[in-house]
Nucleic acid binder design. Structure first.
Length: 573
RNA sequence: UACCCGGUGGUGUAAUGGUAACACACCAGGUUUUGGUCCUGGCAUUCCUGGUUCAAGUCCAGGCCGGGUAGCCA
């Protein structure tokens, strides 16, 4: 066994991803005293999405898989103009829902502001930081460009005493916003622009959600982040690829200060096809009314996925399967949906629900008779047991399950054809009633074979199709929201000149079906509960449900082999 | 035009100098009281050119292609 491979309980050797390999190496060389301690550091300026979920699963998972490993939740609240308490609570709820427990290790960057200030003073005293009076515009001009080196600020060589005095007065609120900054004295000619005397503190008067008006100077990300990691004793600070260019600065600050030095490791953030992940664009969808809110079931937010009916287990499994790398590729949402179906198949109780009802009268079934038929709750889980479903003379079936003129390979109901009503009887279509004006099929007449009760034919006669149904007199009315991908293009950002991602919004991403009928066992179903509507998909009770109306979201449809056949037939024509 | 980082089937991930594998997707078949699940099979891969080596996806050099970086955002 290689030193970089780990042995699991089952004795199988599993390969390590590149981060696990780094950690294994650090453990081997005793770089951090045998510890593994990670963190997830969200800025409380928006809701978490599936990309954050991956980052959480990664960072927290890395700690969980090591004996004694720990993980922190830390709010990186260094920019009061964007951050709000509301987001803090939402983020905590989402992470808990995903199944992680940070115990008592909840931290805020703002808790370290005083310590950070002291560290800044230390750097000034060491001649490694200075107060700069350049305006933001001048600062930009002095920085140079990607190909041209920058120029030293005229304030770069102020004396230590003057810097100390000015910095203290910045904190005391003597200067207007934006008039001065504290900068690290590094190298204005560095090919890495992050090293061209980066700003450490800016003057900013804003009410901070935790520290209120205590501060009018706030630390910049690069200065703050490594200190936060250092103070908390983080060993491996996992972040996304765009911070790779910042790592030299992360290291520089910690080295100059001579403090405990965690290791920053970058990975490729999650991209999903048919999905956008940018906070800014998601916000635009919310504010533009293109979705109902951050928790709209079409949103890739954790709260949206939750409302859609996703299970935390399926999301964690997805994050496990996509792995982690430095290659910035695009994952297929089909894999997420596969993980979802796999989970729901095992646990979701089956029920019958008719989305687009078509009335069926069983001509030879007694007028007032009602039978309670046995139905299996979950064929994948015998312990889920059975339930009773009422059957009577007038039923509803799915409009899609009848064709007056059935195409090849269509196994469902058609004039003269016999099919099985699931858990009930074999029925044969003997009559079709149409609307005289529109020609639309409005009612079917069938006969049933009493010998086939429960769905088995004693004479061994076969039917090609089994369809679902509900008893008209017993069914509950329900609203069902049929969701599809929010975008109709794999890459929503791929657009013509002059147009933007919103032009790729899928006009069919939500279709609301108002007069659906579901079996009576669903009475009182609680928001958040998930079901499989047989032959159709997985559905979740929406919080919009009330005593009087059940509202379901379609979480994900079942695989649809017939749909594929039909599509292929259309193509041929 | 500077620096940093990448490049393995359609998609993503593995192979850690020694038979290029796994999952999803797709296609075909079987089982089935869900056209679901499950089972079987198929498809198809190391960016290019050199070099080192008995042996290179892996190491080296050069090229090509892609991404990131010029906030007092994170």
């Amino acid at each position: 066994m290689s030193a970089q491979n780990a042995e699991k309980d089952d004795g199988k050797t599993t390969s390590l991803n590149f981060i696990q390999a780094i950690i294994a190496e650090d453990l081997r060389t005793d770089r951090f005293g045998g510890r593994v301690h990670t963190r997830f550091p969200p800025e409380p300026n928006g809701y978490l999405h599936i990309g954050h979920a991956q980052a959480i699963c990664l960072s927290f998972g890395l700690a969980e898989e090591h004996e004694g490993g720990l993980y922190n939740l830390r709010f990186d609240d260094t920019n009061p103009v964007k951050e709000e308490e509301e987001y803090v609570e939402a983020i905590k709820e989402d992470i808990r829902w995903l199944g992680f427990d940070w115990e008592d290790r909840l931290y805020y960057a703002s808790d370290y502001f005083e310590q950070m200030y002291k560290y800044a003073v230390q750097l000034i005293k060491a001649g490694k930081a200075y107060v700069c009076d350049l305006t933001p515009e001048e600062t930009r001009a002095y920085r140079g460009t990607l190909t041209k080196p920058g120029r030293d600020s005229p304030y770069r060589n102020r004396g230590v005493e003057e810097n100390l005095d000015l910095f203290q007065r910045m904190r005391a609120g003597e200067f207007p916003d934006g008039t001065r900054t504290l900068r690290a004295k590094i190298d204005m000619a560095s090919p890495n622009l992050n090293m061209r005397d980066p700003v450490m503190y800016r003057i900013l008067r804003a009410t901070h959600h935790r520290t209120g008006e205590t501060w009018c100077i706030y630390p910049m990300y690069d200065w703050a982040h490594g200190l936060e990691d250092s103070i908390e004793g983080i060993t491996h600070s996992i972040c996304t690829l765009e911070f790779e260019n910042h790592r030299p600065l992360y290291d520089w600050y910690l080295d100059e200060l001579g403090v405990y030095h965690p290791r920053q490791i970058e990975f490729a953030r999650l991209n999903l096809n048919y999905t956008i992940m940018s906070k800014r664009k998601l916000l635009e969808l919310v504010e533009g009314g293109h979705v109902s809110g951050w928790d709209d079931p079409r949103m890739p937010t954790v709260s949206g996925l939750r409302r859609r009916g996703y299970t935390p287990e399926s999301i964690r499994e997805f994050c496990r399967r996509i792995g982690v790398a430095k290659f910035d590729g695009v994952r297929e949402i089909a894999l997420l949906e596969h993980c979802l179906r796999e989970d729901l198949n095992k646990r979701a109780p089956r029920v019958m629900g008719v989305l687009r009802p078509l009335r069926v009268v069983i001509d030879n079934y007694p007028e007032d008779q009602v039978e309670e038929l046995d139905a299996i709750n979950n064929p994948e889980d015998p312990s889920a047991g059975t339930r009773k479903v009422p059957f009577s003379r007038v039923l509803y079936i799915e409009q899609d399950d009848f064709r007056e003129d059935p195409p090849r390979k269509y196994f469902r109901l058609a004039p003269g054809r016999e099919v099985r009503l699931r858990y009930a009887y074999f029925v044969t279509c003997v009559g079709v009633v149409k609307d005289e004006q529109t020609g639309e099929v409005v009612e079917l007449h069938c006969t049933y074979d009493p010998a086939t009760r429960g769905g088995d034919s004693p004479d061994g006669r076969k039917v090609k199709g089994t369809i679902h149904w509900v008893s008209a007199a017993h069914a509950l009315e329900a609203e069902v929201r049929m969701y599809e991908h929010l975008f109709s293009k794999e890459n929503p950002d791929g657009v013509e000149e002059g147009s933007d991602f919103k032009s790729n919004l899928n006009p069919n991403s939500l279709k609301t079906l108002k007069s659906c009928r579901v079996e009576p066992s669903l009475a009182g179903a609680l928001p958040g509960s998930r079901y499989q509507f047989e032959r159709q998909g997985y559905f979740c009770v929406d919080p919009d449900s009330s005593e009087s109306v059940l509202v379901f979201s379609r979480t994900v449809p079942l695989r649809d082999t017939w749909g594929k056949i039909e599509k292929a037939q259309h193509k041929k024509k």
